[in-house]
């Protein structure tokens, strides 16, 4: 009992560390900076993709989409010349309903984890997506089929299957916090922390590892590969930040999360945006978001372009 209690800290300690709690996030940050009418821009991945491409953010190419049940049988035509692709719900969240097909030959689909599934199962999966099984509130959804991202070798030793990604928190257009999420065996190759992926906080100015966290506990090595997480240095860091800064221009959301993957050939690509990004990133970074948010409110200029904002972040020195 005492041991269990000792896992707690006092509210004052959290406050001093500038930690943003769920209630404060919803009440002070999201309801103030994110207008509800803007949510569909990020909740619908098809819209996000279109907007992103217009503003010059690269995303995995859309192979096709299926909106109605009668179109499901067209899936084989849609993926016709592809041997690898991803099927996912346009309005999914938390990695639910994402089907990564790493190989498709002679009617046999192989998932990222190596499981072989039949056409019937793929058909069923798409039907499930359409009927709203994976979307919020169970409303009808669209299935999107997009190109598979070939993740860059830099992350190879840090993740077990799947695609590691970089999550940026962007406040008023400034990237203020970053972390990379590394799939593990336990997370089934998915990069969602609550499913058991490792989160590693990144220095926002350099893209270098700060701290690691696995299921809310500090870690320093990748549990499956044993790689030293503290050696992580995300390449093309400035490009990552630019995607984040542009995401603000494209959506107008004052507080958002951007998920970026690094493709071996095409560089950083935006996978999705989130208007209510989770708070676990604070644990991976070892400090609170509130500190950063206050800093931006106080010292960061308004009305800069995306590029200028990225430069500002890279050159910012803490005001003492």
């Amino acid at each position: 009992m005492l041991k269990w209690l000792s896992k707690f800290c006092s509210p004052q300690q959290l406050y001093d560390a500038g930690v943003l709690g769920m209630n404060a996030r919803n009440f002070h940050i999201i309801s103030k900076h994110n207008q509800r009418r803007l949510y569909p821009l990020v909740d619908d991945k098809v819209q996000t993709k279109t907007l992103a491409n217009n503003i010059g953010i690269s995303t995995p190419k859309l192979i096709g989409k299926i909106e109605h049940q009668y179109e499901v049988k067209n899936i084989l035509d849609i993926i016709n010349q592809y041997t690898e692709f991803v099927i996912k719900p346009a309005q999914g969240s938390g990695g639910k309903g994402v089907l990564v097909i790493s190989d498709y030959h002679d009617g046999i689909f192989t998932t990222a984890s190596g499981r072989k599934i039949s056409y019937a199962e793929v058909y069923q999966h798409i039907s499930n997506i359409l009927s709203g099984l994976y979307s919020l509130g169970g409303k009808y959804d669209t299935a999107i089929i997009e190109e598979l991202v070939h993740f860059s070798d830099v992350f190879k030793e840090y993740s077990y299957q799947g695609v590691p990604d970089v999550r940026l928190i962007i406040y008023k257009g400034y990237p203020i916090m970053a972390m990379t999420r590394l799939p593990t065996k336990a997370s089934g190759g998915r990069a969602n922390l609550h499913q058991g992926a490792v989160g590693v906080g990144l220095n926002i100015q350099t893209g270098k590892a700060l701290h690691g966290v696995l299921r809310n506990q500090p870690v320093t090595i990748q549990p499956d590969t044993g790689a030293d997480l503290m050696q992580i240095q995300v390449p093309y860091w400035q490009e990552h930040l630019l995607i984040g800064a542009l995401a603000y221009d494209m959506t107008g959301l004052g507080y958002l999360g951007a998920d970026i993957v690094l493709d071996a050939n095409k560089g950083p690509m935006m996978l999705e945006l989130n208007a209510r990004p989770g708070l676990a990133i604070q644990i991976a970074n070892g400090f609170g978001l509130k500190t950063k948010i206050k800093e931006v409110d106080k010292y960061y200029p308004e009305n800069l372009t995306a590029n200028e904002r990225v430069k500002f972040v890279l050159n910012y020195r803490h005001a003492k």
Binding site: K7, L14, V213, F287
Partner: peptide, 15 residues
């Protein structure tokens, strides 16, 4: 807008 009780445990690794 204060912390939730379980957040005191969840975020305690930070402090």
């Amino acid at each position: 807008t204060g912390y939730r009780l379980l957040e005191l445990k969840r975020f305690s690794p930070i402090v």
